[in-house]
Amino acid sequence: MSPAAPLHADPGLQPERTVLSWGRTMMLFAVVGAVFLRWLPHYGLWTVGLTLSCAVVAGSIYATQRRRYSRQSRGIAAEQVEADVPAVLATTVATVVLGILGVMAVLA
């Protein structure tokens, strides 16, 4: 079986770098979820909800990585990539919600 044809010919490897950047962000969401687990003895069971939320965000990023790479590679090849507004907004909302829940837990 011959290797698949490359999706783009960009020497700057823009899609690769962007997808890896999403991958690092996914890892950090998982790490934050793991750190939340440390609250389990103090704040009780609902910290598991925080960890699960982090896992859902990380899983969503993981599940969309292939599609993201394909979309960005084709976009680079066609010289036009639509800005990914839904992904940016969803990531921001997820971070803000986690932060607010964290502050609420500390102050409660």
Partner: peptide, 23 residues
């Protein structure tokens, strides 16, 4: 499109900074 993707990576770097503060 390279600028759009660079902007997205910069956003993600800031989000990771925010997540580090959160953690």
């Amino acid at each position: 499109p390279r600028f759009t993707l660079a902007n997205e990576r910069t956003f993600l770097a800031w989000i990771r900074t925010a997540l580090a503060f959160l953690a």
